[in-house]
């Protein structure tokens, strides 16, 4: 009992409030990454595991270019291009060589580990705001929130536009009905490659921003990125549908992916604030994602369950019995 009391008295609410802005900033940056996951997972219906590698690639490219004296904006653009290339490779492995979606992503991801090491020359490269001019940094969290929100706004707007165009529509139709898409003259291989490239470009951009935020790029920084991305997408979806119900539209869905990222990082903040060991955070992430993935299924099941039918029928029969008697 004393142990529990002393545990709770050791928790400092102010410490939680103090770390909140940091959680929000990280959540927005990872929310951008989650928008990339949204393109493949939700629109293309393709479980793309390339992102674990391409996130780190974005960080690696930005870090090595900063070290070599390039202006930060150029490094961000090249990070994005490197991500596009990574997605392109996954796409070609899948469409040209017929490798199943998950496997082609895993192959690129594994290859990128070596590529990222080669890009940086070592496994960790510091890019402190003291030595380089960065677009955002963890040292100025309020500014980092504003800048990452600006990125989020631009990217959400760009995605809303692109997926409303003739070309963007083909990506949505390819993901949802490939047979129909072919019958309507859509080259579904091309749609898949474009979507994978765009997705990983966005993921690498997010990786570049995150490396700047944390002040270093690490070859392992993308480990588990797909799960965090899925967490953000799914938390956002469940929440968006709960709040907007049938009025939910594409732009709200996109915004809720970012909100999902923020909520995920706040949840992680709570876990750390509760002094749970940091070694267990991945376990916690997996549990969150599993719960949120299960919610839509379980909710649907509770509405249409066999048990419910049985219960209703039993009730109906018992009342009938009474009437007969």
């Amino acid at each position: 009992m004393d142990a529990i009391l002393s545990y709770f008295s050791s928790l400092n609410p102010m410490a939680f409030v103090a770390q909140l802005p940091g959680n929000i900033a990280q959540g927005i940056i990872w929310g951008l990454m989650a928008l990339g996951v949204f393109i493949t997972f939700k629109l293309l219906n393709f479980a793309d595991l390339t992102v674990d590698g391409s996130f780190a690639t974005g960080g690696a490219v930005t870090a090595i270019m900063l070290v070599n004296g390039f202006p930060v904006w150029i490094t961000i653009i090249f990070a994005l291009l490197a991500g596009l290339l990574a997605g392109l490779i996954t796409g070609l492995l899948h469409t040209l060589l017929g490798i199943p979606d998950i496997l082609s992503g895993i192959l690129t991801q594994i290859a990128l580990y070596s590529v990222n090491l080669n890009i940086m020359g070592k496994s960790n490269l510091p890019v402190s705001y003291r030595n380089y001019s960065l677009v955002l940094s963890g040292s100025n969290i309020n500014m980092a929130i504003i800048i990452s929100l600006a990125f989020a706004a631009i990217i959400v707007a760009a995605m809303y536009w692109y997926f409303g165009t003739e070309q963007g529509s083909t990506i949505r139709s390819t993901g949802s009905n490939p047979a129909m898409s072919k019958a309507q003259g859509i080259n579904i291989s091309f749609s898949k490659v474009v979507a994978l490239a765009l997705s990983n470009g966005l993921v690498a951009l997010s990786g570049s921003l995150f490396a700047q935020y944390q002040g270093f790029s690490d070859v392992n920084m993308g480990r588990g990125a797909i799960v965090i991305g899925l967490a953000a997408v799914i938390i956002g979806q469940v929440l968006g549908e709960a709040l907007f119900r049938r009025h939910i539209n594409f732009i709200i869905t996109l915004i809720f992916v970012i909100i999902g990222g923020i909520l995920y990082y706040i949840a992680m903040g709570i876990v750390l604030w509760l002094k749970m060991p940091t070694d267990d955070t991945k376990l916690f992430t997996a549990v969150i994602v599993a719960v949120f993935l299960a919610v839509p299924y379980l909710r649907n099941k509770s509405k249409n369950s066999f048990k419910k039918v049985a219960k209703q029928n039993a009730k109906g029969m018992s009342t009938e019995g009474e009437n007969n008697a």
Partner: peptide, 9 residues
Amino acid sequence: GKRRGLSWG
């Protein structure tokens, strides 16, 4: 059968 560009869908 037509080219699908970047104009609105």
